[in-house]
Design a protein around this nucleic acid. Structure first.
Lengths: 349, 349
DNA sequence: ACCGCTCACGTGAGCGGTAACATAATAGAA
DNA sequence: TTCTATTATGTTACCGCTCACGTGAGCGGT
């Protein structure tokens, strides 16, 4: 595979490589006749300029990294779409990097991106602690963090107001008469997890309840994690009436745990998910969940990254508001419990 | 952001750049003392070799492209994972390219990958006709096609035996006593779609039935497409008893159409999906579907691509066998139709 | 002491572009 | 006409690394 180079084109057209370069890059100072001639030769030879050589000369790669914990987690593909649509329009290509929830691998991919000299990176839901993450951000040309705040000089940040989402969920359950509410809080390394936990405690406190640590259990952010955590939470004590889950996958796992324990959703226990991934509206019972626009997260992060690449560091933060979507798994009104028709409200704590 | 170069390291260590290069690349002919010295300087200066410069010198980028119609389609993320896990292990980075089902965009991303001088590309479910696709393959260093055959000298190929999957589905429905079977055949540009159509017709013919063109309708490969196609297929005539769908998303759409038309699944109509994406087992009724290991597709394609990058063109084809997974939407036995409890077994084949 | 060999390292020339400056040709102004 | 802008093009030096050689020191054998 012998590639055509700019020198080949120049020779064939009887001009200097610089002239060819000017044609490719649409520089103004070229006579129409030369331009046409060069274009014709480029076409005929099937010449395409080498991005590699170009990058070396210009110190720009037109490539950015997209770091996600797991692209197979339905939360991230849409973010990727939003980011790619925005970036590709501007000529950027995207390196996809899965960290598979492993901090070591996250470090490794960040180094790899550094080696590739990407113009920037979007890092989603980093699992690295601040003191490990921040020094690495400094080594990148431009960074935007998703679901994680950062000092403006190090990185932009696109966050969902996680606490507010959880507050809405708690209020919804309380409003529906659920008194004892459990919380499957997700991976403890996750910033979102901590924020949602904060919102959970805050909402309970504001409503005059005391958060009970035993009712808040961390879990892997997937189907299995939700299943196991829900099982342990629901089987121990019989009084949990509502369950707020770290994400929709966790909620699906919780649904399965309920089925296995013979608990009816939503009659015995109401379940609220988070993220509103595609399946939330498709499963049965359909999932009440906290909707966030994932595509918008990706697009916003990409726009912010482009700004940073071009040296504009403002705005350095975007916060998207989540919104509760009420479906079957946690309706507005609670129906009778222990039920075969007869209501027996046991009245809370 | 002034990056440390190999020259900086060389100067600081008092050796030539070539010596530094030898250390980085673990060449043998270096004295232990020099190696240690250089390593120390590299560490101290935080030097990381530029992949760009390296690529220009070696004519290798350690980057490959992964082209998919839509990463938000749950079929593809797992393929991406399989490919990435395999490729990253060997030091390759992956450019993710969504074509959003648009042939023009597909051409554009292939050109972009060419410009980036990727070492190879995995192209999933290409929507380009052979006469447009093949010439473009020739311009890549190495290619593996997923869900599409190709001349061995142009590209490797990883396919699912689509026809066989559909045959299994048809036989299953026939065996359950379903006589009139519809087929939502997916995007007509898709090779898989044509193969599955072939399998559908073949299985019917083998069973002594004649395929009815009106019962085979193409559709977009998503939820919406399935909904619309199923609606038109089921509303016109009342006698469709079984529906085979291009993929699980289409099946979910069909499920919704049935619900809307007041048809019970599986009592009135049995539905079979394809791919066995995560949600297939989670929705209700759970989906009988044709399982294929998507991670394995990705991993296999990646291994084949690595082979091709290194010049080995054998084997140039892998065919993965799909397998029917029977769940609620199309059980082994058909229960009474138009039924409220009374069994009226119509007795199978 | 001489030769030849290996080992450890240095030297110079690219890889395929672009930036910055130099230069020839042409046009317009005095 | 002569001088100066202006326009269209060529020249040269990198960008940061690797490849293919070149070379000097040290060693053993005769």
């Amino acid at each position: 595979m012998n590639r055509v180079t700019i020198a080949d084109v120049a020779r064939e057209a009887g001009v200097s490589t610089q002239t060819v370069s000017r044609v490719i890059n649409n520089k103004a100072e070229i006579s129409p006749s030369t331009r046409e001639l060069v274009m014709e030769v480029i076409e005929r030879l099937g010449y395409r300029p080498s991005g590699v050589a170009r990058s070396l000369a210009t110190n720009k790669t037109l490539a950015v990294g997209l770091v996600v914990p797991d692209i197979a987690n339905p939360f991230f593909p849409e973010i990727a779409r939003g980011a790619e649509d925005t970036l590709r329009e501007r000529g950027y290509e995207i390196f996809l990097c899965n960290t598979i929830e492993d901090p070591e691998r996250e470090k490794a991919v960040l180094s790899a991106l550094e080696d590739k000299r990407v113009d920037g990176a979007i890092i989603c839901s980093s699992r690295l602690p601040d003191d490990q993450l921040f020094p690495r951000l400094r080594r990148q040309q431009a960074v935007v963090l998703v679901n994680r705040p950062a000092p403006p000089e190090l990185a932009g940040s696109v966050c969902v107001d996680d606490a507010s989402g959880t507050v809405q969920a708690v209020q919804h359950l309380l409003g529906a008469g659920r008194e004892v509410i459990g919380f499957l809080s997700g991976p403890s390394r996750s910033h979102s997890a901590r924020e949602r936990t904060r919102g959970f405690e805050q909402a309970l406190t504001a409503a005059g309840r005391r958060p009970v640590p035993e009712l808040m259990v961390p879990c892997a952010p997937d189907h299995e994690g939700g299943y196991e955590a829900a099982l342990s939470l629901l089987s121990g004590r019989g009084n949990v009436e509502g369950l707020i889950c770290y994400n929709d996958l966790v909620a699906v796992g919780a649904l399965r745990a309920c089925a296995e324990l013979g608990l009816s959703v939503p009659d015995d226990v109401s379940i609220v998910g988070c993220d509103d991934i595609m399946i939330a509206g498709l499963i049965s019972p359909s999932l009440t969940t906290i909707h966030v626009s994932k595509y918008e997260i990706g697009a916003t992060a990409a726009r912010m990254l482009l700004d940073r690449i071009e040296g504009r560091h403002e705005p350095s933060e975007a916060i998207l508001k989540p919104e509760l979507v009420v479906r079957e798994s946690a309706p507005h009104m609670t129906r009778p419990r222990n039920a075969h028709g007869q209501a027996t409200n046991d009245g809370g704590r």
